[in-house]
Design a protein around this nucleic acid. Sequence first.
DNA 1: CTGAAAGCGCTTACAG
DNA 2: CTGAAAGCGCTTACAG
Lengths: 350, 350
Amino acid sequence: MAATLADVARRAGVSAATVSRVLNDNYPVAPATRQRVLRAVQELEYVINGNARALAASTSDLIGVLVNDVADPFFGLIASGVQSETGGDKLAVVCNTTGAPDRELNYLTLLQRQRAAGVVLSGSAIEEPEHIHAVTERLRRLAAAGTRIVLCGRPPLPGLAGGGDDAKVATLAFANRDGARELTEHLLALGHRRIGYVAGPADRTTTRHRLEGHRAALAARGMGAGSGRLIAHCAYDRASGRRATLALLDAEPGLTAIAAANDTMALGVCAALRERGLRIPDDVSVTGFDDLPFSADAFPGLTTVRLPLYQAGALAGRLLMGHESPPPDGLVTIPAEVVRRDSTAPPRRP
Amino acid sequence: MAATLADVARRAGVSAATVSRVLNDNYPVAPATRQRVLRAVQELEYVINGNARALAASTSDLIGVLVNDVADPFFGLIASGVQSETGGDKLAVVCNTTGAPDRELNYLTLLQRQRAAGVVLSGSAIEEPEHIHAVTERLRRLAAAGTRIVLCGRPPLPGLAGGGDDAKVATLAFANRDGARELTEHLLALGHRRIGYVAGPADRTTTRHRLEGHRAALAARGMGAGSGRLIAHCAYDRASGRRATLALLDAEPGLTAIAAANDTMALGVCAALRERGLRIPDDVSVTGFDDLPFSADAFPGLTTVRLPLYQAGALAGRLLMGHESPPPDGLVTIPAEVVRRDSTAPPRRP
DNA sequence: CTGAAAGCGCTTACAG
DNA sequence: CTGAAAGCGCTTACAG
């Protein structure tokens, strides 16, 4: 079996306490003694037992990162950012919830079991009162147990303390509403008046905020949000975006632009348009959201809204590690910026 | 502070042993007693301390997944597959090594500290004798401590036991060589004779195997691997693929096809060709490798080699959980399949 | 600068 | 079916 600290102590001819002090380097130890301990550690190939340490010291080396989909670069970038700031001595646990409420709760419980040092919940939150309540409760308990919490890309949870010197909860809210508004303003400025919108699932915060931004831009021009026929809700993936677009085109053949709620869906939008023999942007302009790496390589290059996902993740990491303090109210807004590429152009003359 | 098992026992009027038995459901307990315990757990919002449990039972809830880049869908798909099979009660720790040898070793140590139940090392391995030795040593120790190990997408490590009934190490090798050979055969069958190759970093197993496959196809036609000028080594990312292509075009203006060692680089190849005013596939054919989701949406759709990454990850997960046994020799080959899309066509007549 | 000892919160033979 | 007690492998006051 693996060597224990007691084995090391015996071999080095010192007490367990001394070995512990050398290992943690948190107390003066005579240089010669230290050398002997270090040699014994080498010889025995000793690796400290993290569980025993965590139990005795009531600390933890774990950081949890909840994501809706690890295979989606949106979350990969956030997770990568978190890990860039926590990598050295903490283990970042990336938990794949697939967006399912019960898996989200289950992971929070597992993380609480491990007494995680920190947890970041990333991406869209589910707007279902019962679930919000359950999540808030879990997070309250985690925070009470000393776990730092960062909400990254979702709105603050009312009822959870945020900010303050001993704040356990911080929120990094993405400027989804502003980004979406500016993007639709861009389409309007180009001259588009009949704009279809492929929205995400109706019960997610991100879906709602982006849609609100879109509507705000229309309203500012005195345009109604359009009849319901101009808006299609569906899952945040390519296949759904494609299907939604086909339906939209059937309902409203006169569309000159389609805005998708994220880049992945936008690829599906483009695919559907090509199937119908429509050229982008000559016949129909298309926009996405997020500016994921592949968007610059899509054809034509996708006009979208850039969100600094990696940087947001890194900030979340620093907050968790206590390397940076959240503002007094615990709320940071991550800015969004329109990126114009070749998928948008003025509509053709009728 | 959080309630402990002793608190629950006191409240339920039973011993700690009984509470433990109810919680783990591994021993008969009278129904009435069980109910009282469960109620006490509810009332105290008790969550078991995973560290204490792991220490006492010498078990672990952690599974480590080492990846070169979480934000790359190649690894995201593998990680996602692993989690699909381990999600319920195990926590999958996705560790981002950025391909750096020291980070790889550091994470292995952290996982050993936590006495991880299993570890999967995914993607390309570094072919540097000293590093291979160090990794083999770490894995040997992990295996000796009871940790199951799966190498996913890299070749077996000589010196590490694989297979057998109590096997701790299994290898899922990707058919990189065969896939690359078939892909180049496809280009040759189309009539291409001057084919550029954008390879990955020279010191990785995946790079070498794919390049060997490419060369084997050429050799079978009696063609030399071409002068060194037809091959460019660079990092596995888009920007590098673009730069390498520009260099290749300068050195060999007569190229009619360029094969990239992965899809991400292939996007860079396409970008470079467009910059030079060359059409795909009319002027130059392009191929990738991996068939990541975006490849079907690239323009033109990318001819590539499909690797069932998610399924490979899922298999790795089942192996780790002991839900499936590896073959006697511990080695599974994951097949690769050429996917023809629109980025390849016969070369134009000169 | 170092050690003996208690304690972290569980599990698990052992005994009944 | 249930409990008392030892033990898992560390850390940390406390004493010297």
